[in-house]
């Protein structure tokens, strides 16, 4: 089975949801016209990234009666969509979230579980921490979503792998930093390294949508990528330029790669769990 993926390497308006929604709908139409089956938007694509005190004012719920999600759900009848937004739960906690929309339905919502609150980041001050990492079924097979810092940690991709995700859908609003002599920022190099590594280690597809543009002095570098289960780069968007980044992925590659390299078959999950229990349950903090 082959599916066409499009990654929306977009700029956003900070705190202007309706302007961002218009762009989502326009790109969904463009991607559909070009034959895309799945269109992935970056982190907080409906709101912009450095929200600070705007966080609570731009929140929406992924429901059919929500004025922002209604047109997105309509658009999802033509192609599947991953969109980034601020989710407000029924207890009025605000999460950095990604929603998978398909055939007019909300298939899955992921709340960002790792909120970077160090260096230039201050997410933990404004948002609630997600508490689940779950794979889910799509019409293309089982998938999992993670948001930016989630996959700077090794455990969420590992959990998604064990939970059956063959498509890892990563969304970021990654501020560019670390200018040296290379033609690539350090932050871009790091993310590309680990995404290639996850694709290779988990013999799975890793799709990464990252935004472009500026918020005050921060630049977002784009460079959307798709890696296949061999760790091969299938497509890469340009740095710092807006656009749709598209490629066709062949899901049969999972069969071919895992026939050659049975890392999933041989993964000793019971051993991992036993040792985790020992390490975390021993009362000793030295290895934590």
């Amino acid at each position: 089975m082959k599916i066409q993926i499009s990654l929306a390497q977009i700029n956003t308006h900070l705190g202007n949801v309706s302007a961002n929604l218009d762009k989502h709908l326009q790109l969904a139409q463009e991607a559909h016209a070009s034959g895309a089956d799945l269109l992935i938007f970056p982190e907080l694509s409906l709101t912009g990234y450095v929200l600070q005190d705007l966080a609570s004012t731009v929140a929406h719920s992924a429901r059919p009666d929500d004025p922002v999600f209604k047109p997105l759900l309509d658009a999802s009848r033509k192609l599947d969509l991953v969109v980034g937004f601020v989710d407000e739960d029924h207890r009025h906690r605000f999460y950095i979230a990604a929603a998978y929309l398909s055939q007019g339905q909300v298939v899955h919502i992921h709340h960002k579980v790792y909120l970077p609150t160090y260096g230039l980041f201050d997410e933990g001050r404004f948002f609630a921490w997600g508490d689940e990492v779950r794979a889910f079924d799509t019409r293309f097979g089982r998938a999992g979503m993670l948001i930016c810092e989630d996959f700077w940690h090794a455990s969420p991709p590992y959990l998604l792998w064990l939970d059956g995700a063959e498509l890892m859908l990563f969304a970021s609003a990654s501020p560019g930093r670390g200018l040296g002599s290379e033609a690539q920022l350090e932050s871009a190099r790091w993310v590309e390294h680990i995404n290639r590594a996850y694709a290779s280690l988990f013999t799975t597809f890793v799709l990464h949508a990252n935004r472009v543009g500026y918020e005050d002095g921060l630049n977002f570098w784009g460079g959307c990528t798709v890696f296949d289960p061999n760790g091969e780069l299938l497509v890469k968007g340009p740095y710092h330029q807006e656009g749709l980044v598209s490629t066709v992925i062949d899901l049969n590659q999972l069969h071919r790669t895992r026939a050659r390299l049975p890392l999933l078959r041989d993964e000793r999950t019971a051993l991992a769990l036993r040792e985790m229990n020992r390490i975390l349950g021993s009362g000793s903090r030295t290895n934590r």
């Binding site: 200018l179 040296g180 002599s181 290379e182 033609a183 500026y214 710092h240």
Partner: peptide, 22 residues
């Protein structure tokens, strides 16, 4: 200590910054 920068990349980011922020 290496203060060498990729000037082409700096130029891309900084001209983009000026255009965007103005």
């Amino acid at each position: 200590i290496d203060l060498t920068i990729n000037t082409a990349l700096a130029r891309t980011i900084l001209t983009g910054f000026i255009a965007s922020e103005i």
